[in-house]
Structure formats: structure tokens, C-alpha cells
Amino acid sequence: MIVELFSEPALLVFLFCLFLGAIIGVLAGLLGIGGGLLVVPALCILLPEVGVATEVVMPLALGTSLASIVLTSSAAARNHLKAGNVDLQAVKLLLPGMLVGGLLGSTLADWIPTELLPKVFAFIVLFLALQMMLTVRVEATRPLPGWGGGFAAGSVIGTISTLAGIGGGSLTVPYLNRHSTEMRLAIGCSATTGAAIAIAGMLGFIGHGVGSEGLPDYSLGYVYLPAWAGIVMTSTFTSRFGVKLVSRWPTQRLKRFFALFLLVVSIRMFLG
């Protein structure tokens, strides 16, 4: 059935993304991330190999990543809600700004020259790796800010996350953890707000991509549907395994794993 629906390059992308999505689902549940830090570099390598025009590779990778995060983070968020891992007050505080930031980030990505987008992504990932490494041992006691501070923080997180094609967990988790939110709840909140950031960013990339030249078949704006389908089919299933690990792993181990994960990705992007 899939062979009938997709041409050979699209089928190759679909099958690869089935495997990629299985890994992303576990990470989404375990770390509160949507997997964009894996999806974007993977698609940047894969899409040119199947004949996708270079000038649309990065926007497609970002838009597809955000589209997959909508379902991946939603599945992780549902599991975290069932497990009691979500602080709804923190979610309400950050959510409005994150929605605005998601739309703003997709607009900025459309304005930035295509050849500079990979450098922007690599810089953001390196920043995320370093800031998490530096805060691994920090035990913060600051309370969450008021509505204005929460809106500002959410806007920054949403904008940066959309520019990197991620759900914001790499920023939301350490932010909440520094503001006296325990790691388990910070991860659950990150999965919940990540879905909202991804929806806003995805809609922006779809709108900006409609009618663009060089898009491959089966594209919806800057969302490549074969890749999206492969990722979400497995990631929404495997996220439950990551959620189970959250309650078993000590906080410091989660922080170290999270920081190491980001550092490896950033090094890979700069080398590549």
C-alpha cells in the first residue's frame, strides 16, 4: 500500500523515519523534548540524497520537525498527565508567550537567507548544550515569575525553539528547573507546552512554504509528509517507554543525560 502511495525516494524517507521516530518517542517521554534535535540534522543529510533541492532542505527539515512534534509531544504530554508529572500553573504561565514565539520564529526563519539557517540551528544547539552543562549542578530556589515574566520567557523559548525546529524542551526544562520546579514536573510541562509551540511553528512554516519553488511531491508548505508520517507512526507509540523511565531515574542522572545528548548533537552539527 505504501509503495503505491509514495515514489521510491519518498518511500526511502518514510522507512528511515520510522526508525528515527522510534528513538524520538523514547526521548520525548524521557526528556520532555519533541525530537527536533535529531529530526533536523537527519533530514538535512537525507533529503539532498533523495533529490530535494538544496534551497528548500533546511526549511523543510524545520517545518517537518515541528509537524512531527505536534503528535510526539501530545502523546508524551498525555502520558505525563496520567502519571501526574505536569504542573498546570507553570503551563498556563508560559503558554501564551510560547504561542506568539512559535509564530514569530517561523516568520524569522522565512526571512533569514537559506544558507544561514543551518548555522543558526548549529549555534542554538551549541548554546543549549553549554547552558545545560553549566547548570547540571545548580539547585535553584527562585519562584516562577509573574504573568509578564512568564510571557516574556515563553516568547523567547517559542521563538528560539521554532528557529531550531524543536519543541522547546531544551529550554523549558532547565528554565523551570531553575525556578524551583522539580525535574519530573519540568519534563512533563515541557512535553505539554512543546506541542503548543510546534502547532504555532508548523502553521507558520506551512503558510510561508505554500507556493514555494523546488518543493518535492507530497509537501504541504514546508512540511514533507512522508517524513512526517514515518516519524509520528512510531514516536507516538514509544513515548510511553520514556515516560516510565522518568520516575525511575534520579534527577542528577537525567540532567547529565540531557546535557550529554545536547552536546553530542551540537558537535555533530558543527562537524557536518
Rank of each mutant, 00 (worst) to 15 (best):
F19R: 00
L20V: 09
G21E: 04
G21F: 07
G21L: 09
G21N: 07
A22V: 04
I23A: 07
I24E: 10
G25C: 02
G25K: 02
G25V: 02
V26N: 00
A28C: 03
G29I: 12
G29Q: 07
G29Y: 10
L30T: 00
L31H: 04
I33K: 09
I33C: 06
I33D: 10
G34Q: 12
G34L: 09
G35R: 08
G35L: 06
L37W: 15
L37A: 15
V40R: 13
V40E: 06
P41G: 09
L43W: 05
L43T: 03
C44S: 13
C44E: 11
I45Y: 15
L47V: 13
E49W: 14
G51V: 09
A53S: 15
E55R: 15
V57I: 14
M58H: 11
P59L: 00
P59C: 01
L60F: 01
L60G: 01
L60V: 02
L62C: 06
L62K: 05
L62F: 04
G63V: 01
T64P: 13
T64H: 12
S65M: 07
S65I: 06
S68T: 15
I69S: 03
V70S: 01
L71I: 11
L71D: 05
S73V: 07
S74P: 02
A75E: 01
A75W: 09
A77W: 13
A77H: 11
A77D: 09
R78F: 13
R78C: 00
R78P: 00
N79S: 14
N79R: 14
H80A: 09
H80P: 12
L81N: 08
K82Q: 13
V86E: 12
L88H: 12
L88C: 02
Q89G: 06
A90G: 15
A90V: 04
P96T: 00
M98V: 02
L99N: 03
